[in-house]
């Protein structure tokens, strides 16, 4: 039992580290991006169709590239930022790049769910665009955003495991190196079980938080 723990714990921690850092930066970049996608629409508070279209195209392009290709494709960029192209740190860069556009779309659809009448009421009270974003759009979509973040975390977890294939660390790497290259199926099964448990915990925690926030 002990050797199992010794084998799995470092990889699990690496995975959690990758996921945490990537999700942190994804939210940091994706949230404003998603907000801009909504408010620059023709019928919203700061219409700017030029900016809206450019952002939309960029997001679509990034999302069209399969993650494993993207990782290889941006290796020079990754080296420029973190100084290496292998290991846990190196995976974080493509992870952020791949999930930020995804999360931006998630934010966009959450905010679009808000009844326009509520925004209009705020406009009629003389709210500034910043006030509308901070005091109406974000609080009103918070429950839906939490669910979106949950989906994003699980997505990042999946991608991070994929990164094991090209030398990223974490549970994915463990599963591939032991289970695939060394034919130790039991290690692979153990990592898969661990991933299943992780996903369950993340999803149910997300659901719970969203439920508490939701006042509808």
């Amino acid at each position: 039992m002990n050797e199992w723990i010794e084998l799995l714990t470092p990889s699990l921690l690496e995975t959690l580290y990758m996921v945490f850092v990537s999700v942190f930066f994804t939210i940091l970049l994706g949230l404003p991006l998603g907000i801009i996608l909504v408010i620059t629409r023709e019928d919203h508070i700061l219409p700017n169709s030029w900016l809206n279209q450019i952002l939309s195209y960029m997001i679509n392009i990034t999302r069209s590239i399969p993650f494993i290709i993207l990782m290889i494709f941006i290796m020079p960029f990754t080296r420029l930022i973190v100084g290496t192209t292998i290991g846990t740190k190196a995976v974080i860069v493509p992870l952020i790049l791949a999930t930020t556009p995804f999360f931006a779309r998630v934010v966009e659809s959450s905010i679009k769910e808000i009844d326009w009448g509520v925004v209009e009421a705020a406009i009629s009270m003389g709210a500034t665009p910043i006030q509308i974003i901070l005091k109406v759009l974000l609080p009103e979509s918070m429950s839906s955003l939490v669910l979106g973040i949950t989906i994003t975390i699980i997505n990042v977890l999946g991608y991070s495991a994929m990164a094991g294939a090209i030398g990223g660390g974490g549970l994915g790497y463990l599963a591939i190196s032991y289970g695939y290259h060394r034919y130790q199926t039991n290690v692979m099964i153990a990592t898969v079980i661990l991933l299943i448990v992780l996903v369950q915990i993340i999803q149910s925690t997300g659901n719970k938080i969203a439920q508490i926030i939701n006042k509808k």
Binding site: G117, E120, A121, S124, V136, P139, E140, M142, I213
Partner: peptide, 12 residues
């Protein structure tokens, strides 16, 4: 201004 659908903030 008041509205047909009230337009209250659900989160508050």
């Amino acid at each position: 201004m008041i509205f047909q659908n009230f337009n209250l903030l659900h989160s508050k």
